[in-house]
């Protein structure tokens, strides 16, 4: 019972179109307003369609970004300008940003899912150092003649849900080895698109943040779960606790002097910090609360 190729291709429709069809409701006809809106939409559609038409990559059909493992870390390849901006990168990655060769990547498709692996054999998928700001946080990924960013996602977990890394490991990934390597710290919205509130650039405040976070004890997920969510009388109560915890989340952006950005999450009401890059939790103390109140709270 073979699926026609056209039907198979439907699984590779862009995610935003699929989610659009889930939420779409028809609007009433509003005459000339509708035609003006359509004209505006067309301009937007063309600007989106051009990069889509140019894309020839081998991406995972179910992910916006396809992850791969390299040098102890997972990376995702990104060419969406909005996401590149989130990480402090230019809106387009070009050949001149590719520095030294880092690795060749082998792309395999199995049951419709793509997997990416480093290979010693020369392929048309190549990883380079990001020349404007060499680090393990950002690489340039070439797929044929198309260039993208390979952005650090997280460290290897060794198959354990309790693996943990200190925050300084995350700093190392982005070449932060002293407070002076951090240009600013800001709170951003959930989508990490815009700064909400003040941006901390004061050298003394950054030094204090750096010193405090460098020595925070790290907790793996299992230990964290035990401390936070064990002992609830019912599953419902536990679920409420999880929801309250997630609602407390505040996103903090750390921008390096090279302009690269990475993020940590604060849960001030519960005195925890989490970094998705390290997949670890950190307990924050009174000094850290004071810093947050002084710098991030109005």
């Amino acid at each position: 019972m073979k699926t026609p190729r056209m039907a198979e291709a439907m699984n590779y429709i862009d995610d935003d179109l699929v989610s659009g069809a889930i939420t779409y409701t028809r609007k009433k006809n509003t005459g000339w307003v509708k035609w003006c809106a359509l004209a505006a939409c067309l301009c937007l559609v063309i600007s989106i369609a051009i990069p889509v038409l140019q894309h020839k990559g081998g991406h995972d059909p179910v992910g916006d970004t396809a992850p791969f493992f390299f040098n102890g870390c997972y990376y995702e390849t990104v060419d969406d300008p909005a996401i590149l901006e989130i990480y402090g990168l230019p809106k387009k990655i070009t050949a001149d940003m590719a520095g030294d060769h880092a690795a060749y990547i082998d792309v395999n498709f199995e049951q419709g899912f793509a997997s990416f692996e480093e290979t010693p054999i020369k392929t048309d998928n190549e990883l380079y150092v990001y020349a404007p700001a060499p680090s393990r946080g950002i690489y340039v990924y070439r797929e044929g003649d198309k260039y993208m960013a390979a952005i650090f996602c997280n460290f290897e977990t060794f198959g354990s849900s309790n693996t943990n890394y200190e925050l300084k490991e995350l700093y190392r990934i982005f070449n932060v080895s002293q407070a002076e390597d951090i240009a600013s710290i800001s709170e951003v919205d959930w989508h990490r698109e815009k700064v909400i509130g003040a941006t901390v650039t004061d050298a003394n405040e950054i030094q204090e943040f750096y010193d405090m976070t460098m020595v925070l004890d790290s907790y793996g997920n299992d230990d964290f779960q035990n401390q936070m969510f064990s002992g609830y009388p019912s599953e419902e109560k536990q679920m409420e606790a999880h929801t309250a915890f997630a609602d407390d989340c505040r996103k903090i952006r750390v921008e390096t002097k090279d302009g690269l950005r990475f993020y940590v999450s604060l849960y001030p009401s519960f005195s925890w910090m989490h970094a998705s890059g390290t997949m670890s939790y950190y307990k924050i103390d009174n000094a850290m609360h004071d810093w947050i109140n002084r710098n991030l709270n109005d």
Partner: peptide, 20 residues
């Protein structure tokens, strides 16, 4: 898949997996 994948359109991400 999550992590390292961070879906931008979570509903579409799930629907595609289910459909596949």
């Amino acid at each position: 898949k999550i992590p390292p994948t961070r879906p931008n359109h979570f509903s579409a991400f799930l629907c595609k997996i289910t459909r596949l």
